[in-house]
Design a protein around this nucleic acid. Structure first.
Length: 135
DNA sequence: GCCAACGTTGGC
DNA sequence: GCCAACGTTGGC
């Protein structure tokens, strides 16, 4: 089981909408590093849903991979989609500011590779963020 | 809305 | 194959 973090601009696709629709295809990733991460996702992996751009950028929920990567049907370019399903809410959002302020999370891709839209998360990082969301 | 950081493109 | 120019992302 692996952990990931996927970013979305809430104006394009918010966690609210994710919750309402229950599942969606994750499209729009046009970056090679991010695509490689999509390809490494396995069915059942969990992803933090991160909302960027608007207000306070934060981890706002958790989704689960329900279909592994497949060719983007809207193009013949080698981009891929995965399908994800709403898994659970976090008790409270964990903002980027808090992640940056946490000494245990200074190595997190979210801090170091801020522009990468699909990022791996280690088990330790996952658990730390979960802990923060509960306190 | 600005701008820094980064990825990609293309000329040489 | 290097690197400058350009475009895009995303935090502020």
């Amino acid at each position: 089981m692996n952990y990931w973090l996927i970013k979305s601009d809430p104006e394009t696709y918010s966690f609210e909408r994710m919750k309402k629709e229950k599942k969606t295809f994750w499209d729009g990733v046009h970056n090679y590093a991010a695509r490689n991460n999509l390809k490494a996702m396995k069915k059942g992996d969990l992803c933090f849903f991160y909302e960027s751009m608007n207000g306070e950028p934060s981890i706002v929920g958790i989704v689960k991979v329900i279909k592994e990567h497949y060719q983007d049907p809207t193009t013949t370019d080698p981009w891929v989609w995965v399908d994800v399903q709403y898994a659970e809410d976090v008790k409270r959002p964990v903002s980027l500011k808090e992640v940056k302020a946490n000494e245990k999370l200074t190595q997190m891709a979210l801090v170091r590779l801020s522009r990468l839209s699909v990022q791996p998360v280690t088990k330790e990082e996952w658990e730390e963020v979960m802990k923060m969301s509960k306190s």
